[in-house]
């Protein structure tokens, strides 16, 4: 509202009322949150076994001792995550594009892509990790690679199957009239996809993609089953050395911290999209 306009008494009253309502609802939610937290805390602390659990899961000294190893492991996770994200983005766009190709000549490719997504969405990640991490090196076809490398490949294969379906949904959600308009301008199928359809598709599915990214961020920890000394494996080693589970809790907390920025970013982006579509109305 332009600042220099005089405001009527009625409006001043309405604003005052809305302000008190806001303050009241903030207070109510604050109080209920505190009450809820206190009740949970008291319940847990007063359980008969709390002292023992506290000692073996939340021990500060053990946590500090495990810290260097777990942090070093987390760095491995971050490296794997970095390469896996790039691999997933590239592979899934290719798969999604193949799955949207029309015409009978593309049938074999389309069928192959469909079979791939069916297979890898169905297979539990841990089984893919074993097959790729222990099976493929066993073929002695490729030069020797680290377990970390094969773990990354397994992650890429599994997540690309999911993410390609997200991309495909996005591509199909772009209205056919957009394709029609692009082809009418003389653009080829490939140009139409690259310049007109994909940019719109990506925008539509960004929140879903970010969600998959968060999911992958923690599944990176599963490469520990291949013997990679990542944060989870490091925690396991520390746990075995001290008969204390605190390192696991520490690793878990670190994974949460790693995911938080992305989770917040997703929320912010989704809220922004919603605000844009709502055009300022209050319903």
């Amino acid at each position: 509202m332009p600042a220099n306009l005089p405001i009527s008494d009625v409006e001043i009253g309405r604003r005052a009322y809305r302000r008190t309502q806001n303050v009241r609802s903030v207070l109510v939610s604050l109080v209920s949150t505190i009450v809820f937290a206190v009740v949970i805390w008291l319940t847990v602390v007063n359980t008969p076994g709390w002292e023992r659990v506290q000692r073996s899961f939340f021990d500060l000294e053990t946590a500090l001792a495990a810290w260097p190893r777990v942090i070093a492991g987390l760095w491995v996770n971050i490296q794997v995550l970095f390469f896996a994200v790039i691999g997933v983005l590239v592979l899934s766009v290719i798969i999604a594009t193949i799955r949207t190709l029309r015409g009978p000549i593309w049938f074999p490719l389309r069928a192959l892509a469909a079979a791939y997504t069916d297979l890898f969405r169905g297979l539990p990640l841990i089984i893919v990790l074993f097959l790729i991490g222990f099976g493929v090196p066993g073929l002695e076809l490729f030069p020797r690679q680290s377990a970390q490398f094969w773990g990354t490949i397994a992650l890429i294969l599994t997540y690309s199957a999911y993410v390609s379906e997200v991309f495909r949904a996005g591509i199909e959600a772009v209205h056919p009239s957009q394709r029609l308009a692009a082809r009418s301008l003389g653009l080829s199928h490939g140009q139409t996809m690259r310049i007109v359809v994909l940019p719109q598709a990506v925008r539509k599915v960004t929140p879903a993609l970010m969600n998959d990214f968060v999911a992958m961020q923690k599944d990176v920890g599963l490469i520990s089953v291949l013997g990679v000394v990542d944060a989870v494996r490091a925690a396991q080693i520390e746990t075995a050395a001290n008969f204390n589970f605190t390192p696991y809790v520490l690793a878990g907390l670190l994974f949460v911290l790693l995911a938080l920025p992305m989770i917040r970013l997703t929320d912010w982006y989704t809220a922004r999209l919603r605000a844009r579509e709502q055009m300022g109305s209050i319903v």
Partner: peptide, 26 residues
């Protein structure tokens, strides 16, 4: 029209539907 239907909040003034002040936040 959107202000009358209360999907936009007015910045000043009043609106009555019948004898009810519908710009009242209550």
């Amino acid at each position: 029209l959107r202000c009358i239907n209360l999907v936009e909040r007015i910045d000043d003034g009043r609106i009555w539907l019948g004898d009810l002040d519908i710009s009242d936040p209550r």
